[in-house]
Design a protein around this nucleic acid. Structure first.
Lengths: 197, 197
DNA sequence: TCCATTAGTTAGTAAGCGCTCACTTGCAAT
DNA sequence: ATTGCAAGTGAGCGCTTACTAACTAATGGA
C-alpha cells in the first residue's frame, strides 16, 4: 500500500443521467414502487442523496421520465397527423413517428408504456393527451368523408391497440428486431380496420 | 344507553369475499403496492388479521385474484378457438368469450388487465398462457391456408391489441356501455387484419 | 352438551422505506 | 490564491408497512 494514495474516495460525476438510466431500468424491471431509492443509487454508482439534488423525490423522478415520452409523443402524433396528405400518408407518418421514438430509446419508451396505468388518471377526460388528439383526428376524417362512418372512440381504441399491443409484446420478447421494422405492417392493419366493410 | 347491551362487539362474517372485493377495488384504483393491508381491511369492514386466515400475505392474495382471470381466460380462449367452424366463427366465439368474461365481473377483469405487467415475467417464453395459445392457433390457420401468410407473432400482437386496448380505454371511461356491445366490431376488425391485402 | 375446528380480532413488532442534513469536493469567476 | 456555489456523500431518523401471536367467538358433528 503506497503511502501517497491514502484511501482516495471515488466521487462520481454526471450523477443525473446515471440516476435516470438506473431508475428507468429498475422501474421497468421491478415497478416504480418496488424499486427503492437505495437500489437506484447503487445501480447508478452514486450516493442516495444525489437523487435529491436533481429531483424532489422518487415520485417526481418517475413522473419526469414518464412525461418526457408522453409530451414528445403528443407533439409527434399531432404533427404527423395534421400535416397535409392522404389518409394513408398521414397514418403512415404517425406510425413511423411512434416506432422511431420507440427505437431511439427503447428503455425510456418501455417505461412509458408500462406506466400508463399509473400516471394516467382513471376517470377524468383529459383534453390534450395523445389518445384524445388521435381521436379528434379520426373524427375529422369521418366528418370529411375520408373514412367510413364509425364510432371514433372505438376506432381509436382498436387502431391504437394494433401498435401498442405489439410494443407490449416486444417488451416481453415476443417480437425480435427493431420495432420500426413492423411499421408498414402496422399501417396496413390500421388502414384495413379504418376502411373495413 | 341501555344497560343490557354492554358494548356488543360486531364480528363480521364472510370476510374472505369481502376482502377480495375490497382488495380488487384498491388494487385497481391505487395499484397493488400502494394499497395497504390496513386499507383493504378497513374497506372490507374487517380486521387486518382476517386477511391472513385466507391468504399467506398480500402478494398471494393479488396473485390469486390475477390467476383467477388468467387461467379462466386461457381455457375459454382455447375452447372457443379449437372448436370446429370457419375462421370467422372461431374468432367470433373467442371475442365473445373474452367480452362476456369482462362484463361478468368487470372489476376482476380490470385488475387482470392492468396487472399483466406485474405478473407476467418479462423474459421467459411461457408455454401455455393465453397469448401463446392464440399464436399457435393463428400459426395453424396459416399452415392450413385459411388465412394469408404472415408473421404469427405479429398477427397475434395486432389482433389481440384491437380488443385489449379497447378494454384499457374502457377502464379509462373512454368507452361507455357493456364491453360485449363492441364484440361484432372487434370481430370484424380482427378479420380485416387477418385477411388484409 | 361438549369439544374440535374454523374464522375473526387486537395489539404489537421488526424491518425497510423515503428522505434529510451536516459535511466534503471540484470548478469557475474574480 | 481566494472564494462561492453547485454537486455528491452517507449516516441516520421518523414513519409506515406487512405480518404475527395470543386470544375469542361461532359452527357443527359425535
Amino acid at each position: 500500500m503506497p503511502a501517497n494514495s491514502p484511501e482516495r474516495k471515488e466521487r462520481s460525476r454526471n450523477a443525473k443521467p446515471r440516476i435516470e438510466r438506473a431508475a428507468l431500468q429498475l422501474f421497468v424491471d421491478e415497478g416504480v414502487d418496488a424499486a427503492t431509492t437505495r437500489q437506484i443509487a447503487n445501480q447508478a454508482g452514486v450516493s442516495e442523496g444525489a437523487l435529491y439534488r436533481h429531483y424532489k423525490g422518487k415520485d417526481e423522478l418517475a413522473l419526469a421520465l414518464f412525461m418526457e415520452t408522453h409530451n414528445r409523443l403528443g407533439e409527434m402524433l399531432s404533427e404527423a397527423l395534421s400535416q397535409p396528405g392522404t389518409v394513408e400518408e398521414r397514418i403512415h407518418r404517425a406510425v413511423l413517428a411512434y416506432c422511431t421514438l420507440a427505437d431511439k430509446d427503447w428503455l425510456l419508451f418501455s417505461f412509458h408504456l408500462v406506466s400508463l396505468n399509473r400516471f394516467l388518471p382513471h376517470d377524468t377526460r383529459r383534453e390534450n393527451d395523445p389518445v384524445t388528439r388521435f381521436e379528434r383526428i379520426l373524427e375529422a376524417m369521418i366528418a370529411a368523408g375520408e373514412i367510413p362512418e364509425a364510432d371514433p372512440a372505438l376506432l381509436t381504441a382498436m387502431t391504437l391497440g394494433i401498435v401498442m399491443q405489439a410494443a407490449q409484446n416486444k417488451i416481453y420478447n415476443r417480437l425480435p428486431g427493431p420495432f420500426s421494422a413492423h411499421a408498414p405492417a402496422f399501417t396496413r392493419a390500421i388502414l384495413a380496420v379504418l376502411y373495413q366493410k
